[in-house]
């Protein structure tokens, strides 16, 4: 076992990624002869690092997208970025995005392949984002790949560049539903703080009630 495959204990590294799909209504001029008549949407399912230009290729050997079984050759393999599959279809289903890491002890990468499930969205689903006039639907999810106790090699790859520099501004105002910002995280945090406060207040409230009841009970027992 080479030293680079030694795991660094108690440390984790996270890489933010976007995964999800874009969908548009299938324009008539885009239809080809092969396109089934009942297909109404064109969609692209993808996974990519949240930071433009962050290179995952040293880690990821390939990405397979497992589509619905009704598709011809439902498992699509993409070996280099952009990791995405564009298809047409009419229905929503769950796409299994599977990350294949470079295997091999000698490389020092020793991670199991990893699946992400994504429910394909073709129709507007989020009440916060009003449906767009052109019928575009974006279901972009933010998540982080967490490398717990990475090997030294992985550590080296992932620390070669800061990967978590989320922007504070949208690259395009129209992409509100496609990008996540640092401010979003802060919003989320403050929201959660509020909830926690709320719950804690409730706990206090309930505790006081409990005490009162206890005294009542004692009084009754005497």
């Amino acid at each position: 076992m080479s030293s680079s495959s030694k795991r660094i204990k108690n440390v984790s590294i996270s890489v933010p990624v976007y995964y999800g799909n874009h969908a548009v209504k299938l324009a008539p001029e885009k239809r080809t002869e092969k396109t089934p008549v009942d297909h109404t949407h064109e969609w692209t399912v993808f996974i990519k690092p949240a930071i433009e230009g962050f290179d995952l290729t040293p880690l990821i050997k390939k990405v397979t997208f497992k589509l619905h079984e009704t598709y011809e050759s439902p498992v699509r393999t993409v070996e280099r970025p952009p990791y995405q599959v564009t298809e047409t279809g009419w229905g929503e289903f769950e796409v299994i995005i599977k990350l294949h890491f470079h295997a091999g002890v000698e490389l020092g990468i020793n991670e199991k392949n990893f699946q992400i499930f994504h429910g394909l969205k073709l129709h507007p689903f989020n009440p916060q984002h009003p449906p767009k006039p052109n019928g575009e639907v974006h279901s972009v999810l933010y998540d982080e790949l967490v490398f717990s106790e990475p090997t030294e090699k992985v550590f080296e790859i992932l620390t070669s560049k800061p990967s978590n520099l989320l922007p504070y501004k949208l690259s395009d105002p129209s992409k509100r539903d496609q990008e996540y910002l640092r401010t979003d995280e802060l919003d989320e945090l403050s929201k959660l703080d509020v909830y926690i406060e709320q719950v804690k207040a409730e706990i206090e409230n309930q505790r006081n009630l409990y005490k009162d009841l206890e005294q009542e009970k004692l009084a009754l027992l005497q």
């Binding site: 998540d143 106790e149 992932l158 978590n164 520099l165």
Partner: peptide, 26 residues
């Protein structure tokens, strides 16, 4: 802050399982 930018975190107390996970399914 810079460590955060690298996504680095040191888990002093909690146990972690080596491997890759998604943050949302942690």
């Amino acid at each position: 802050k810079e460590e955060e930018a690298y996504g680095l975190h040191y888990h002093a107390n909690d146990k972690i399982v080596p491997g890759v996970t998604l943050r949302s399914t942690q």
